[in-house]
């Protein structure tokens, strides 16, 4: 008798879990636009992962006889001045752009969240120190600072990651500090203190998980911005170096051919940047509506 009721209970639990998953899915997909954005991100990521198998040609293989081919069935996006297939290069570029943006976001998120959490929970001089540091970074226009850092450190891929991470740390530090100021006054924080937990344990084990939803939203939005920054840095020659295919640099290269009529050279990498950044922004907004309902409707 007991066992049958336990089994029935398990079934109910499983159904309940499935129902909640469906609900979250429905809220995310109700909006056609965010569904399309989500689809675009998944497609771009898959393309980046499968680039060597997906790209029809070697992205770096030059061929003098194929130089500046128009869009055709052989070259869906045409070829550049060295005869490299543009489609293959756009697909391969996705790997670099996404990887750099993702790494920079992950580094900035980790450090920003750590600093913000400690500053918010501890308060006092620690808070002052972290927040003045953050203010210092934010006193510079973000893009100028990124340019400055890559120009000083030398423009390797790693330094691009470092530069973007530094300029993005304030976003997460300020967010987490605010969340932590709220969380530390909650009764469950008080309860965690009354049973003798160490402060570090309270911050990272008890309180931090409660601050995750706004962090996810912020990271998604910042991801789009990071991609844009990688492309912009490369566009002005301070980012990813040729011959590595990268959207920003390809756009810059193509820009020189607009007047001579080779429009495909700047258009396709440019569209790739636009679609990717737009998709991340849209999905970030959609996640915010679901995870952080206080901000609903605020754009």
């Amino acid at each position: 008798m007991r066992e049958t009721s336990a089994m029935a209970e398990a079934v109910v639990l499983r159904r309940e879990r499935a129902r909640r998953a469906r609900l979250l899915w429905r809220r995310l997909t109700k909006d056609r636009l965010s569904l399309a954005a989500g689809g675009a991100i998944v497609a771009i990521m898959l393309a980046a992962l499968a680039a060597p198998w997906l790209a029809p040609y070697d992205p770096d293989a030059t061929s003098a006889s194929d130089a500046l081919q128009r869009v055709s069935l052989r070259h869906w996006m045409g070829t550049d001045v060295y005869g490299r297939d543009l489609l293959s290069r756009v697909i391969h570029a996705a790997r670099v752009d996404l990887l750099v943006a993702l790494t920079a976001t992950a580094v900035a998120l980790t450090w920003g969240a750590f600093l913000g959490a400690v500053a918010g929970y501890r308060g006092g001089w620690m808070d002052q120190l972290v927040m003045r540091l953050v203010d210092t970074i934010m006193a510079f226009p973000a893009f100028i600072l990124t340019m400055g850092i890559t120009a000083t450190l030398g423009n390797s891929t790693l330094n691009v990651v470092v530069a973007i991470a530094i300029t993005h740390v304030p976003i997460y530090a300020r967010l987490l500090r605010g969340e932590m100021l709220k969380a530390r006054e909650m009764e469950y924080a008080e309860a965690a203190r009354t049973v003798g937990n160490r402060p570090a344990r309270i911050v990272f084990f008890h309180l931090l998980p409660n601050c995750v939803p706004p962090l996810i939203v912020q990271a998604t939005l910042a991801m789009g911005f990071a991609i844009l920054t990688v492309a912009a840095l490369s566009f002005i020659g301070l980012g990813i170096q040729p011959p590595q295919s990268e959207w920003g640099y390809m756009t810059a290269e193509g820009a020189g051919y607009i007047v001579s009529g080779e429009w495909w050279l700047f258009l396709f990498p440019g569209v790739a940047i636009m679609v990717t950044v737009l998709a991340f922004n849209l999905i970030g907004d959609a996640l915010r509506d679901v995870l952080d309902p206080r901000m609903r409707g605020v754009r």
Partner: peptide, 8 residues
Amino acid sequence: RTALNPVL
């Protein structure tokens, strides 16, 4: 309800 951590 508020003294128990909602995520644990």
